[in-house]
Simulated scan of single mutants.
Amino acid sequence: MTGRGAAVNVSTIRELHDMEDFEAVSLLYAEIWGSEPGSSPISAEVLRALSQAGNYVAGAYEDDRLVGASVAFFGEPIGATLHSHITGAVMGRGVGLALKTHQRQWALARRLTRITWTYDPLIRRNAYFNLVKLGARPQEYLTSFYGAMDDAINGGDESDRILTAWDLTAPAPPEVIELPPGTEHAILDHNGRPETVATDADTVLIDLPDDIEALRRTDPGAARAWRLAVRHTLGALLTEGADVIGFHERRRYVVQRPTPHP
């Protein structure tokens, strides 16, 4: 076992099958998301059904205490894809990475080659984790995907999400990305607010706010401005077929426009 503050070892993660464990996961999620009592992001009953049907429900433990959990179900294309619906963990102990590593091994053991999930494109730590630590790549921009949400993390903002795919057979990408010559900003952080820049560059940068979750509480207007700027810019680029090829300096997307055909 690892001590507090240290990374959790993959051996502390196990699949869950008992109602007592599912209830603990539901309560942990409610705590992480700051949900109202009885309004956890997922109920113990749904976890029971998913597990019974052969899907992925796993918990991470530190000294026998639940510190993270992940839930996934089979997706399209069937036989190749696992869709990771929700992963929650205490921060700063490497729990999230350990869960994703376990999830990857579980998928590969079932001959799956792809894991998909959604995340809020404005949360920098999640973008860095998904794109750099795991090597997943954004596929589609989904506007107000879950509708209105009133938990402590999402409250007061629209639930835009990025659908992301992790190719389990691909080599890990480099952690530091070299920007191609001629790279320009499409969204620039200007004193804490987004500044949209008109550019025809083949490769563009999209800055993110320092802490969108804090900004939602302290300056809802600025948070709204970031939501709309990233939605319109990144969303349009992905719709056009652009590729997010990396995450630069832990604060900005690197997006490459599609090569025009003659």
Rank of each mutant, 00 (worst) to 15 (best):
T164V: 14
A165G: 04
I153S: 00
D120W: 11
L179F: 15
L97H: 07
N130W: 04
D167R: 07
F145E: 08
H185G: 08
Y146K: 06
R110M: 03
P171E: 04
Q139S: 10
D151C: 09
N154G: 05
A127M: 07
P171I: 07
I162Y: 08
G135L: 03
I153Y: 01
A107S: 00
V95M: 12
A170R: 10
L134T: 07
R104G: 03
E178N: 14
Y119N: 07
L142T: 07
P171L: 04
I177L: 13
V132N: 02
A152D: 15
I115A: 02
A127P: 06
T101C: 09
R104Q: 08
L131D: 07
Y146T: 14
N126I: 14
A186K: 01
P173A: 12
T101A: 11
D150Y: 06
V95H: 02
I153H: 00
P180C: 11
T169D: 14
D120I: 05
T164I: 08
P181T: 11
L122D: 04
T116M: 03
R104V: 04
L131V: 07
W117D: 08
T183R: 11
P180T: 13
A165N: 03
T116C: 05
G135K: 03
E140N: 06
Q139Y: 13
D150E: 09
T143D: 11
T183V: 03
L99R: 05
R125Q: 15
K133W: 09
A172L: 14
D160T: 09
T169V: 11
L179Y: 15
H102I: 00
P174Y: 01
A165L: 00
Q139A: 11
G182E: 03
S144A: 13
H102V: 01
G156Q: 12
S144K: 13
G156K: 08
E184I: 02
T118P: 09
I153D: 03
I115R: 00
T101P: 00
E158D: 14
E184C: 05
T116I: 10
Y146D: 07
Q103N: 09
M149I: 12
Q139M: 15
T183C: 05
P173F: 06
N130T: 10
L97N: 05
H185L: 13
L163D: 06
L168M: 08
V176T: 10
T113W: 02
D151L: 02
D160H: 10
K133P: 00
A107E: 01
F145G: 14
T101D: 09
T143R: 15
V176P: 03
L142F: 07
